[in-house]
């Protein structure tokens, strides 16, 4: 197997004593991020409905990419089964609200519980597989779940479920924003905690990590459950927002590929990369869809191919390393990775 995560860089170890300048930039960065979040929170009162709709979709995708980042980017396990957690979260809300007439937040808890429990149980079995085998096994899980849910009466079978309508875009937007921020803060914590370093060690060399005292099975399963939690909550918000779900729609494997593309495009194993990746790719897709109604998917495909060829390590790496090399950065990427 080719090493999945070799390309990612770790946060630079602070060299020597953190100087006053370092502390100042960090404080500045923190303030800038807080302001950015505040500005985003204010968006529904400034922007129009179209923008708010787009915001909800981007924030949910950012959460999904961030959730994938935990298991795929940090731990190095390329999950193609995260759409299962999304589907479980969506169906948790739908079943609670439609079949039992429970409030939305109970449904969210149900979806969260289903997703996390599923990740815990399945994780114990599938996280022993590595590389392509893990990827394909989780893909298989996603397909099995679609087929099983299509046959479940409580989930409305093939037809799906129609949820009660709630016309409050602002509420959905703020919920999605809160979740995306929470996911990003969790990843930020991962990037500088003992637990996160354990995950990175697993990604870099699992056997080496175990010999040095990392309880690899436990760490991997917890990472998978964490990833599932955010993904399931995003699924729950989506279901109530869109008001209609069916198995093929929410257990969609293509959605899973999207999460990966956004995380990898942004920079797997980085803190802000997946969010930036989700924003840029969604915006590109939106603009393409508006300008070239028919050819949007063609250009989306071309963007993926070109991005993988010329910037295989994602935006986070590009921003940090392009420097004075300029366009030669892209050529050098091709040089290192070609046959």
């Amino acid at each position: 197997m080719k090493r999945a995560g070799a390309a990612q860089r770790l946060p630079e170890p602070p060299e020597g004593e953190p100087g006053a300048r370092g502390a100042a930039t960090r404080a500045a960065r923190r303030t800038a991020l807080a302001l950015a979040v505040a500005a985003l929170a204010a968006l529904p009162w400034i922007g129009n409905t179209v923008l708010v709709q787009f915001g909800i979709s981007v924030l949910l995708l950012a959460t999904l990419a961030q959730g994938w980042n935990i298991i795929g980017g940090y731990t190095g396990y390329p999950s193609f089964g995260n759409s299962v957690f999304y589907g479980l979260g969506a169906y948790g809300v739908a079943i609670a609200m439609v079949q039992y007439e429970l409030p939305f937040w109970v449904g969210m808890l149900l979806g969260l519980g289903l997703g996390v429990a599923f990740a815990g149980l399945l994780g114990l079995a599938v996280l022993r597989l590595k590389g392509h085998h893990f990827a394909i096994c989780t893909l298989g899980l996603a397909l099995v779940m679609t087929a099983i849910v299509s046959n479940l009466e409580i989930a409305g079978g093939n037809i799906g479920l129609v949820l009660p309508l709630l016309r409050s875009e602002v509420l959905f937007y703020e919920l999605a924003l809160g979740l995306a921020v929470l996911a990003t803060l969790t990843v930020l914590w991962l990037s500088r905690s003992r637990f996160g370093l354990g995950l990175i060690a697993i990604r870099e060399n699992e056997e080496g990590a175990a010999v040095m005292g990392v309880n690899t099975t436990f760490y991997k399963v917890i990472a998978f459950m964490l990833s599932a939690a955010f993904t399931a909550l995003a699924g729950g918000i989506y279901a109530y927002h869109i008001t209609y779900i069916d198995p093929v729609g929410v257990f969609d494997v293509v959605l899973n590929v999207k999460m990966i593309i956004m995380a990898v495009f942004g920079g797997p194993g980085s803190v802000l990369g997946p969010v930036v990746g989700a924003l840029i790719l969604s915006a590109t897709a939106e603009v393409l869809a508006a300008r070239l109604t028919g050819a949007a998917s063609l250009f989306f495909g071309i963007v993926i191919v070109v991005a993988v060829v010329f910037m295989p390590r994602g935006i986070a790496h590009l921003v940090r390393h392009i420097g004075p090399a300029g366009w030669r950065y892209f050529i050098d990427n091709v040089r290192t990775h070609r046959l």
């Binding site: 070799a6 630079e12 170890p13 990175i200 060690a201 870099e204 056997e207």
Partner: peptide, 11 residues
């Protein structure tokens, strides 16, 4: 040897 290739020596 089984180093963590993408990590710094200190890490």
């Amino acid at each position: 040897m089984k180093p963590f290739p993408g990590m710094s020596v200190l890490e």
